[in-house]
Design a protein around this nucleic acid. Structure first.
Length: 1059
RNA sequence: GCCGGAGUGGCGGAAUGGCAGACGCGGCGGAUUCAAAAUCCGCUGCCCGAAAGGGCGUGGGGGUUCGACUCCCCCCUCCGGCACCA
């Protein structure tokens, strides 16, 4: 323990007891004076001349376990930045609040019957108490929780805004659904037979090539139900029956993002696929904007990459394949339309509509029983099982399609390696150029036809196609001709168009030994070939390695297209097209990009295909079958049609429950369905607009609630004006604080995809509806690293709790129970490993200032780093020294060095101020602290010496330290007789001229080592420096009379003498 | 497999083309103390050497450069993410 029981410490020493006395006191004074209260534009005390700085911490979920040491890491970082920015004269918005809906409180309610609100409020109070003990400079007046009615009212309001919007593909933005109605009523556009929005002429916004203009129906041609159905299908929030990720253990469906390797992200429980009618948010409409928006953001590269991958844009084509005996075409998506000549079969997902039709009405060759069995099995397999099964499976559907490029009749299979929900759920399989298709084709004996070769093989292929009978017969002749041909083509890198003439020329030359028939360039090259016997030989060796023993074999291999099949793997890289020609179009000889362009053009002309962009991102599953979440403000009438609750009637609050036990059922039922009286109500009681539904109409409330992410999608907006009862955020406050988004957002990388993607999506919708002024919510994002703790590992990699291990004299560790040697490692803190560090205890032992400093000093903010309790003492000692710099430990008086300002120390102080400021802006807190330690170590004399710093110097240092150790700084500030709070002081200034030295020490390097150092004027030029180096006695001694070969002198930096 | 990040003393780390190891922990020695804790002062990359000094040294191999932890190529290891996405 660092506190002294005997009281023999000097009376005015900075110790833990003292820190624990002054820290709460300063926190009290700050709160009393409202030091960190930040006024909004238009309010008293707001200074519009100051620039704004909005600094946000990621919304914490207040768990029952309280704060762990990872929380204060990010919070201390933002606090330092905020305190610094305030001192630099900015209006700083630095809020804190609680993301408080969610499963843990509900699961606790299931076990104990305690209402989740009660548990959650308790946790919030505990979190707040813990956070406040750190002295963070939050504006607590802006605090709120997502479970506050005054907050989730607006969460529901935003949901309704989304519900009442559609995405205009022309303008690429959300618009009120009323605009769409107006457009339809005006006859500008209509509805296609496929239920898509199309312009009057039938040219469509979305997908297009099979539509016929005659299919388009105008608004007045639709029935009321058809109109309603169409509008509902266009909403950004829509109901859809779809296969969801059902997690029985959690009793709810999960969004794709919440599923990892077939298990739930939270708790790692298995997930099954189940059809459910659910609310979906049309985030996919924003794919392109979410992708493009990333480019202007100051975000970690890794997070941008993760979002890009998650959105997963891929450019390709959609192509319709005719199906034998059916009118309707089978549409596929492919990124490699250039390989269409190699499409030898097709695969559709087991959930594909065509499979369902085959089960109803089997075709002649359909083995209905086998098909049914396969589909059943695919459906019931959980995602875990699907992923574990490496071996390809599938069944022939009995149907055949026609490859539009080759005219070949190709079988249609179903297999679960084709996913429903990506692309069209159907593919053209090109086994020669796709690993999955290759594997499948190998297993089921399907044709493999290669249509892309690497460049060298393309030449072999060309030759195989054009071999003369004469050459084929002669074992040596074909090889030599081919070798010459390849050598010539590869040396001049000739175009495929020239292959014919070049081959002709090679034959000519071999026959006549002349140059006739070649271009001038080729003739020049020809001479080389002849003289390069060895190179020709190398070609022959590689030709032989292809395995063709004679000309006939070569022809079989290449003209027959069997090469890759024999090679045993697919060639998936870009290459040159071969065997890709029909009467209308030829891709032969083209590279990938050109081939894609040409074939897509051909498909478009034929009306059977077009370019298409696909995204991996799916729409956001927004319904949860839980109690503890925001109710969805929607009701259903007896027909099952849905109606929004009017804005005036918000919030829709949760009904009280007697038990929280999920209803056991094969059909997943939302928990709220049990609240019968709440669920069954009338339109009037539920607050539906009278114009929409007569008040006495019986309605059923939506019983699904919103997912945990909903509340965190817009909290950054609410903080700007958190007490506003009229609007989700005041317009002026929003425009001021959210201009260009949040200026610094710090939180864990675990939210890289989920929260950050959803929040960006909501923000963009609100932007489109002109409800916010910026397009992106978070301009600069930073992830703090994880803080690990010690743990011990057995040889078999299992972990041992720290209280079951003994340290031995020699520095090794053994498990007490078994005596087995274990190694010390760093691992995540966990209850089971007994290595959780409790911040409250650390503060009790050292004080909050020491804790703050320690976490910032551990290493770079973004790094994962191990907690080392012993190392905290270093920061504690530093603060003690800083204290002693200003205060006499025995008397408590200020140690005023008077007017004896030491020029060197003054220079060092100013440099320290400059470096600390720069480092804070770079979020490089560890080096900032190191600089302050150096200053203190330099300024603090050994025992008994008189103080060396003046009060002016001391107070400037205190201001520099203040963002890091604010309590100690306030105490010193007041003892130094300064006015007001150091928290409200301005940042110390420095003279840039002080940062430049008059004289510098320049190292002299010889034979790769520093051999001497020169003290020279900083502005000494290269010649002078060189002369000074050569005149230095140590240099002369090292040279020992040898003459330097070269002397490099970089003024102010270094001299290198090369021997 | 693909994408992103990292590899420097016993440990956390600093240095982004110019003196490798700032600063902190730990360790060693000393002061203070009856003694200890706390605090303070000094030393502390490794090897050879009594010392002066010398050699080696930033995951491994190669390259560029007067000069490389830093830039380029290849490889290894660890961490994070994605993964039948056509």
């Amino acid at each position: 323990m660092t506190t002294d029981a005997n009281g023999s410490n000097p009376p005015a020493r900075y110790d833990a007891a003292f820190a624990n006395r002054i820290e709460p006191e300063w926190q009290r004074r700050w709160a009393e004076a409202g030091v960190f209260r930040q006024a909004n534009p238009g309010e008293a005390g707001f200074d519009g001349a100051k620039p704004k700085f909005y600094c946000l911490d990621m919304f914490p979920y207040p768990s029952g376990a309280g704060l762990h040491v990872g929380h204060p890491e990010g919070y201390t970082a933002t606090d330092i930045v905020c305190r610094y920015q305030r001192m630099r004269g900015k209006n700083v918005l630095h809020p804190m609040g609680w993301d408080a809906f969610g499963l843990p409180a509900e699961q606790y309610a299931i076990q104990t019957g305690v209402h989740p609100a009660e548990t959650t409020r308790k946790s919030i109070d505990n979190f707040r108490r813990q956070l406040q003990r750190f002295g963070f400079s939050y504006d607590w007046d802006r605090e709120f929780a997502t479970i506050d009615e005054g907050y989730y009212k607006w969460t529901q309001w935003i949901f309704l805004k989304i519900y009442n919007s559609w995405f205009d593909p022309q303008q690429q933005k959300a618009r009120p659904i009323g605009d769409l109605v107006a457009m339809l009523e005006g006859g500008e556009c209509g509805v296609s037979a496929w239920g898509e929005l199309v312009s009057r002429e039938g040219a469509r916004g979305t997908q297009a090539f099979t539509g016929k203009p005659s299919d388009v129906r105008l608004w007045h041609e639709l029935t009321t139900e058809e109109r309603r159905g169409f509008l509902d299908s266009q909403r950004l929030a829509y109901l859809d029956e779809q296969t969801v990720n059902w997690c029985p253990k959690l009793g709810t469906a999960l969004a794709n993002e919440e599923v990892k390797d077939g298990r739930s992200e939270r708790g790692s429980h298995p997930v099954y696929r189940k059809p459910l009618r659910q609310w979906m948010l049309r985030i996919t409409a924003y794919c392109d904007r979410l992708l493009q928006g990333l480019e202007g953001l100051d975000w970690p590269e890794s997070t941008r990459a993760m979002q890009q991958e998650w959105i997963g844009k891929s450019v390709g084509a959609e192509i319709d394949f005719e199906v034998e005996g059916r009118d309707e075409a089978l549409r596929v998506f492919t990124t490699r339309p250039d390989t269409i000549f190699g499409a030898t079969y097709m695969v559709i997902a087991p959930e594909h509509w065509l499979v369902d039709e085959m089960l109803d009405e089997p075709a002649g060759e359909t083995d209905a029983a086998a098909l049914r069995a396969y589909v059943e099995q695919a459906r019931n397999r959980s995602d875990v099982e699907r992923q574990e099964a490496k071996e390809k499976t599938g069944v022939f559907t009995g149907l055949y399609a026609v490859n539009p490029a080759t005219g070949a009749r190709i079988p249609i299979w179903t297999a679960d390696y084709v996913l429903t929900g990506y692309g069209t759920g159907a593919i053209m399989a090109v086994p020669a150029h796709d690993e999955r298709d290759f594997e499948f084709a190998q297993k089921f004996g399907l044709e493999i036809r290669d249509v892309v070769y690497p460049r060298a093989l393309q030449l072999v292929s060309f030759y195989a196609h054009h071999m003369t009978e004469d050459e084929k017969a002669d074992d040596e002749k074909w090889k030599k001709t081919l070798a010459d041909f390849m050598g010539l083509c590869t040396t001049v890198d000739s175009d495929p168009e020239l292959f014919g003439p070049v081959l002709g020329a090679v034959r000519e030359r071999r026959r006549e030994q002349q140059t006739a028939g070649l271009t001038a360039e080729q003739a020049a090259e020809k001479g080389h070939i002849g003289s390069r016997g060895s190179i020709s030989g190398e070609y022959i060796v590689s030709i032989e390695s292809l395995g063709a023993k004679d000309g006939q074999a070569l022809e079989d291999l290449f003209a027959g297209g069997g090469y890759w099949r024999r090679r045993g793997e697919a060639f998936t890289l870009a290459g040159v097209c071969v065997h890709s020609k029909n009467a209308e179009v030829s891709l032969d000889g083209l590279g990938k990009a050109q081939a894609i362009e040409r074939i897509t053009g051909w498909l478009e002309k034929k009306g059977i295909g077009q370019e298409k962009v696909n995204y991996r991102l799916r729409d956001w599953l927004f319904s949860r079958q839980r109690y503890w979440g925001e109710p969805v403000p929607i009701v259903f009438d007896e027909q099952g049609d849905h109606y929004p609750v009017s804005e005036e009637a918000l919030p829709v609050t949760l009904p009280p429950m007697t038990d929280y036990q999920p209803a056991e059922s094969d059909d997943p039922q939302p928990l709220l369905a049990k609240a019968g009286a709440w669920v069954r109500t009338t339109a009037g009681d539920a607050g539906v607009d009278e114009d929409t539904l007569r008040p006495e109409t019986p309605v059923r409330r939506e019983t699904n609630t919103m997912p945990g992410w909903a509340g965190s999608c817009w909290y950054h907006l609410r903080y700007a004006d958190s007490q506003n009862a009229e609007r989700f955020v005041g317009e002026e406050a929003e425009r001021y604080w959210l201009k260009d988004g949040v200026d610094l957002y710090i939180g864990g990388a675990e939210h890289a995809v989920l929260h950050l993607l959803y929040a960006r999506f909501w923000h963009k919708v609100l932007f489109d509806l002109r409800l916010v002024s910026s397009d992106e919510p978070y301009r600069k994002l930073f992830h703090q690293g994880m803080i690990l703790s010690h743990a011990y590992q057995r040889k078999n990699k299992t972990l041992v709790p720290i209280n079951e291990v003994d340290a031995r004299e020699d520095g090794t560790f053994v498990e007490r129970a078994t005596g087995e040697a274990v190694t010390q490692i760093a691992a995540k803190m966990s209850k089971s490993l007994k290595n959780v560090v409790n911040p409250d205890e650390v503060i009790a032992e050292f004080g909050a200032d020491t804790f703050r400093l320690y976490e910032m000093y551990m290493g770079p903010l973004e790094a994962t780093k191990p907690w080392d309790t012993r190392a905290i003492a270093g920061m504690y000692r530093f603060l003690q020294r800083a204290w002693r710099l200003a205060i006499d430990e025995s008397t408590g008086n200020v140690r005023d060095g008077g007017g004896s300002d030491d020029a060197e120390l003054e220079k060092l102080l100013q440099r320290t101020i400059a470096k600390v400021g720069d480092d804070i802006e770079k979020l490089s807190f560890n080096t900032a602290i190191a600089a302050m330690i150096e200053f203190v170590n330099a300024a603090l004399p050994g025992d008994g010496q008189s103080p060396r710093l003046s009060v002016s110097q001391l107070e400037r240092f205190v201001r520099t330290l203040a963002p890091f150790a604010p309590h100690l700084a306030e105490e010193l500030w007041s003892r130094l007789g300064q006015e007001g709070f150091v928290s409200e002081a301005s940042w110390a200034s420095y003279d840039p001229a002080m940062l430049i030295d008059d004289a510098v020490e320049v190292p002299v390097q010889m034979k790769g080592k520093v051999r001497a150092k020169l003290l020279v004027p900083a502005d000494l030029d290269a010649e002078g420096l060189k002369a000074a180096a050569l005149a230095d006695p140590k240099v002369i001694e090292f040279l020992a009379g040898a003459k330097p070969e070269r002397v490099i002198a970089i003024p102010g930096k270094m001299v290198n003498i090369v021997l």
